[in-house]
Amino acid sequence: MSGTHSSSALPAPIARLWESLRERSRSKRALLLMAPLLVFELLLFVAPFLILLRISLTDGSQDLRYAPGTWSISGYGEVFTTDVLLNAITYSIKLGLLATAITVVIATFYAYAIWRSEGLVKSALLFSVILPLLTTLVIKTYAFMPLLSPNGTLNDVLLSLNLISEPIQFVPGTVGVVVGQVYIVLPYAVLAIYSVLATMDWGIVEAARDLGASRPRSVLEVVVPQAMPGIIVATVISFAWSVGAYAAPGLLGDGQNKARAFALVVEEQLLTNLQWEVATAYAVVMLLLMVVSIVLLTATLNYFGGEFEYA
């Protein structure tokens, strides 16, 4: 038999086309179902990014937010020669590294605790992660103001215990920003690590202990390497969101010149200074720096074991 019954009457090229379509009929149906989301991502994610990139390459304009149709790298020039912009990048990356380090250590410990606990305790611990996760950034940062401000709860407690003689200004200040940012990303980091741990067999930890590893040692030797994919995801998420943090530095930071975060400066460029070519170029530069940092971070962690996987 040559060709199918349905194509035998058709000219050869059309028959071949029909044939290949029929072969792919399953994929075609699948593609049809995936198409709306693909189109959505292209229109709402990829296209805006290309436009962002294009605007970053236009010339500055006095009367408009940017000068359409022109080509220039003046926006990038501005980014690399303006101290305010460069300082903000430095500050944000430092903030990102610090918040990430603290977050990942706490998250690993907490995820392990959730994994090891049972029943009501486990539910309580999981609940304590999910509730903040589903709470808006605004509330999460706002809550630290009455706690950490100079006349706030923490200072009251410390003063009454005579641990300090004068109130410390956690908020506004970088301490407050870091605490607030850790609080924001911690739930995501915990769950990323927990979801990996949950697939793990407790037996291997027992085996390690049976072979003479102390308890902390067995965790370091066996649990951490196994949880590495989750730890890497947690690191990437924490770092990406902390570098781009807006709410915590905006509300809990003191906004002084060298302590302003990237997100606040880029907002100002866009909305107050109306310099779109600078704002977009600035965003592109930051994004590239972020990608490079994330690649370096994952490579470092991968070096210590574990493979990067998508959550």
Partner: peptide, 12 residues
């Protein structure tokens, strides 16, 4: 970071 998404979408 949502700030970068926010900027790109606003411009868009």
């Amino acid at each position: 970071p949502p700030i970068i998404l926010g900027i790109s979408m606003r411009v868009y």
